[in-house]
Each structure stands twice: as structure tokens, then as C-alpha cells.
Design a binder for these strands. Sequence first.
DNA 1: ACGAACAAAATTGTTGACAATGTTGTTCGA
DNA 2: TCGAACAACATTGTCAACAATTTTGTTCGT
Lengths: 216, 216
Amino acid sequence: MPKEARPSTGEQARQHALAQLRQAILQGDMAPAQRLVENELAEQFGVTRASVRAALIELESEGLVERIRNRGSRVRVVTVEEAVAITECRMVLEGLCAGKAAVEATDEQLDQLTALGEAMSKAVADGEPVTYSDLNHELHAHIRQFSGQQVAVGLLERLNAQLVRHRFQLALRPGRPQKSLSEHLAMIDAIRARDPQAAEEAVRSHLAGVIDALRE
Amino acid sequence: MPKEARPSTGEQARQHALAQLRQAILQGDMAPAQRLVENELAEQFGVTRASVRAALIELESEGLVERIRNRGSRVRVVTVEEAVAITECRMVLEGLCAGKAAVEATDEQLDQLTALGEAMSKAVADGEPVTYSDLNHELHAHIRQFSGQQVAVGLLERLNAQLVRHRFQLALRPGRPQKSLSEHLAMIDAIRARDPQAAEEAVRSHLAGVIDALRE
DNA sequence: ACGAACAAAATTGTTGACAATGTTGTTCGA
DNA sequence: TCGAACAACATTGTCAACAATTTTGTTCGT
């Protein structure tokens, strides 16, 4: 059994570098459109340039990084129009997942959704938008998971990764949580009622609302 | 202007190798589940191993290749269940595209769809399933394109690449083109009528039919 | 002072060699 | 004969150096 020591060098360098870099981008440590110089990253993470390079190639196809031939890599900036287009795709894919979840979820899983709904109501009542945003994300993740639709889950996780920056922006908008909450509760109710069509429709109208909000 | 000479070595090796390998997999030159040894591929394509490696990393995240740590790469085999799951995602994403296409397409583009529909009818009448399959693919590609939804187009192209093997299998099934044709004509009519909801519904019921056929 | 040609620096793309890991075949003991 | 330890092989992972390309800064002519 290999011990869980940090693979600082010479072990699983690429995976290490990849995880580090991905997290750095997702957490917003890297400024948007910041240049990503392979040498700097290699030194920063204590791996060789080849490993950084491999990680960058992977991150590019995840849509988190932009690479131009002989010009280098940048953190990709997602414009508002792109965010809208991405959310349109989320709309139909999460709709699919919700419909399946309404049929496939176990009773225990439905209870989890109920609990999440109550926690979200409390977060809004207490005026904690950050907590609410986290729960929001968690709810969507649970619904995806309960659907058992692995392909859709994969696509959605990739799409969501590209939206981190926009999500924070949206959660802090005044009045937004209140409107969002009722839509989320409707989603939960439809799934609990095991009504696939209603679940799909609830998710779609919720994300249609998100799109309106994105457009301001 | 750089001449179009083959970049056999030292030029754009990675892109060359990537294109070559992708095409080889898509055309079915590589047997399913065939082992992809980096050294062999490097020699076969006349590039270095690093380029092949980069190409494999990219193909992995496209879902065409499977890579296991320290064990090598294989051509990924898509099971029937996976093909169904993929087609479910196609169903909602192409539905989204069709709805947008019904609104966004120009009149010239609608004429193209009409022409495609007539060609498909002819191919079925003449009993040419291969021609029909090609036109089928072309029709779906056109609808995607006319939607202007770049994110959805990207996702769909990736999903479709994973289905090449199953598509052929389906097209040659007796009686399948006849059933499929009427569904396709319904899609075209709905888009020409500029009715987004009807277009989305037509696409979804068509692909629901494909799913049934996949399951046999 | 302005623009074009040119040179220098920075950065990515490529190569071959080396290390780590997993796989397979063989030998030895019971 | 069977199974486990071991050794040889095959393959991937990592590294450091080199080549090609692009960008930037400078000089020269007008």
C-alpha cells in the first residue's frame, strides 16, 4: 500500500501539478487572463516543465485554459454571452438529470434533498448568501448524482468549472437568493413527487431565471 | 504563405499526430480496445513520443482513448448502455439547438434543410442506406450549426465522435431508414415553420426513437 | 520625429536519454 | 505438479538540453 505522502517530486508529478493548477484557477488565485508561463509554473509547483505542459493540455480541453501556438497559455475568460450559452446547455442537461432522478432516486436520497431545501431556506432567512451559494451548488450536484446519468454528469461538471467566477458574482446580488430559493424548492418538490416532467420543467425554468439574471 | 507540405517532422508534430490518430480511430482503422503503444505510434506517424503523448492526453479528454497510469492507452470501447446515455444527452442538446435554429436560421439555410430532406427521401426510395446515413449526419450537423449555440455544438461534436461505431451498425438495420426518415422530415418541417417548441419536440422524439433502436 | 529593418530576449516546441512502474516468464522449493 | 519468489522485459513517466518561433527593444534612414 503506497503511503499518502505528498508526491512533491518525481512521483506523480503531472497529476500533482494538474490538481494544483486546476484548484488555483478554480479558487481564483490566478487573475483572469493571467499569463501562464510554463517555466514559472514548473518552479512554483516543484515539477518539470513537461509535467506542467501535460497539465495545461488537459486543462485546455476542460475549457479552463486557452493555449495559442507558440504564444503560451492564459486563464480563459468566460464572457457573459458564453456564460449564457453554457447555462443554456446546463438547462437542458440538468433537466434531463432531474427527470431521471425523479424516477431513479432512493427514498433516502429524497430525504437528503428535503434536508438541503430546509438548510437553504434557513440560509436565506439568516441572510447568508455565501452559505446559500454553497448549498445551491450542493443541491445541483446531488440531483446530478442521483440521476445515474454518468455522461451528463461529466459534461455538467466540466461546464460548471467554467462558471466559477460568474457564480460568485450572481450569489451576492441583492434579492437574488429569495427568487432563486422558491425555484429550488419547486425542483425539490417535483422530484419528491417522482414526477419526471415536472422536475425537468422546474429545473429548466430555474435556469432560465439564472440566464435572465446573468444578462442583468 | 507556408506551403501545405506534410509536417512530417519538427514542424507541427503534435497537431499532425493528433489529427492522424483521431482520424485513424474514427475511421475504425484501430480495432476496438486495441492497445496504443506510444513508441509504435511515434514510429508509425514519424513523430516523437512526446507528441504522441500530448495527442493521447487530448484524445483521452475527448473520450476516444482510455489511459491507465503506467499501463498505457487503449481505444475506448463504448458499450450499448453508454451509447444510450450519450444519445440521451444528444437528445436534449440537439433539442436546444433545433429550437434556436428555428428562430435564428436564415431563409437560405431553411432552403438547405429542405433540399437535404428531399435528398434523404430519395436515398431511402433508392434503397441506399449508406448515402442516407451520411445525409442524416449532415442534417444534424446543419441544424447544430444554424443554432449558433457554439457551446452545444462543441459538446455534441465530442459526443458524436464516440458513437461512430454504433452509427454504422444502426444505419444498416432493415426498416430503420423508413422510420427514421419521417422523423427527420418532421424536424425539418418544424424548423421551417419557425416553431421552436415543435422543433425541440421533434428532435427529442426522433432521438428517443434512436435510443429504442439502440436497445434493440 | 516617424517607420522599417534588424537584433536580442523570452517562451514555447521538440528531442533523446534516464528512472519508475508494471508485466511476463523462469526457477526453485515443497 | 503447483505455487511463490525472482529476474528480465516492455512500457510509461520524468527530466534537462536544444531548436524554432514570436515578441520586444533598438538603430538607422528619411
